[in-house]
Amino acid sequence: MKAGKLRHRILIQKKEVVRDEYNEEQEKWVTVCSCRAEVNPLQGKEFFAAQQINNKITVKITMRYRNGISTAMRIIFKKRIFNILVSINPLEKNRELQLMCEENAG
């Protein structure tokens, strides 16, 4: 993988249960790491649902291999939030990860 392709900075987050100042448990997104990646839009779909126009944008994020990345995590890129749909380790070589993601509209 050529380093020049990894021109975007992303944050990988996971949901954790943390305690607040009142000792109550709350779910919160916590940053696991910040890394370089290549972010490529794959397709844009517009469809009508409940008389509203919704955009469903799918991107492929390619990054160096990192163990433990799962679909329970999310990606932050330029103040946009992407849910990880699939994590692919090409040829099982542990050199790179391809993350197929969908933008979180809400």
Score class of each variant (00 low, 15 high):
Glu27Ser: 13
Thr58Lys: 06
Leu91Met: 07
Ser34Leu: 03
Lys2Glu: 13
Gln43Glu: 11
Ser87Arg: 02
Phe77Lys: 11
Lys78Leu: 15
Gln51Phe: 02
Lys78Ser: 15
Ile76Pro: 01
Thr71Gln: 05
Phe47Pro: 01
Ala50Ile: 04
Thr62Asp: 07
Leu85Trp: 02
Glu46Cys: 03
Val86Asp: 09
Met100Cys: 01
Lys14Glu: 15
Ala3Ile: 12
Arg36Trp: 13
Lys93Ala: 03
Arg64Asn: 11
Phe47Cys: 05
Leu99Gln: 00
Asp20Thr: 04
Glu96Phe: 04
Cys33Gln: 04
Gly68Gln: 05
Met63Asp: 00
Gly4Glu: 11
Asn83Gly: 10
Pro90Ser: 04
Leu6Asn: 08
Lys93Gly: 00
Ile75Lys: 07
Ile53Leu: 11
Phe47Ile: 07
Ile10Met: 05
Asn54Cys: 04
Gln98Arg: 07
Met73Phe: 05
Gln51Gly: 04
Phe82Thr: 02
Gln52Asp: 12
Lys93Glu: 04
Asn83Lys: 13
Val30His: 10
Ala105Ser: 14
Glu103Phe: 03
Arg7Ile: 10
Lys5Gly: 11
Asn23Cys: 03
Leu97Gly: 04
Thr58Tyr: 02
Glu21Ser: 12
Val39Tyr: 13
Thr71Asn: 09
Ala50Met: 06
Asn94Ile: 02
Met73Thr: 11
Leu42Ile: 08
Met63Lys: 14
Asn67Ile: 10
Leu11Asp: 13
Arg64Phe: 07
Gln52Pro: 01
Phe77Leu: 14
Phe82Pro: 00
Arg9Gly: 08
Lys15Thr: 14
Gly68Asn: 07
Asn89Cys: 08
Ile84Phe: 04
Leu97Asp: 06
Val39Asp: 07
Asn94Gly: 04
Ile81Tyr: 14
Cys35Ser: 12
Tyr22Trp: 09
Phe77Thr: 12
His8Ser: 14
Glu102Met: 07
Ala72Phe: 03
Asn94Ala: 05
Ile61Phe: 09
Gly68Asp: 07
Ile61Thr: 09
Ala37His: 08
Arg9Met: 13
Gln13His: 13
Ser34Pro: 01
Asn40Gly: 02
Met1Ala: 15
Pro41Thr: 12
Leu91Ile: 05
Leu97Ala: 03
Tyr22Asn: 13
Glu38Ile: 01
Asn40Met: 07
Asp20Val: 02
Leu91Asp: 13
Asn104Gly: 00
Glu103Arg: 09
Lys56Trp: 02
Phe47Glu: 14
Asn55Gln: 09
Asn83Met: 09
Phe77Cys: 12
Thr62Glu: 12
Glu96Lys: 13
Ser70Glu: 08
Ala3Trp: 05
Phe48Leu: 11
Arg74Leu: 08
Met1Tyr: 08
Lys78Met: 15
Glu25Arg: 03
Glu38Asp: 07
Lys93Val: 00
Thr31Ser: 06
Met63Gly: 01
Cys35Gln: 12
Ala105Phe: 04
Phe82Val: 03
Ala105Trp: 06
Lys2Gly: 14
Lys14Gln: 15
Glu46Asn: 08
Glu38Pro: 00
Ala37Glu: 05
Arg19Cys: 01
Ile76Ala: 10
Pro41Ile: 10
Asn104Val: 03
Arg7Lys: 15
Ile12His: 00
Val39Cys: 10
Pro90Met: 03
Gly68Pro: 08
Ile10Asp: 04
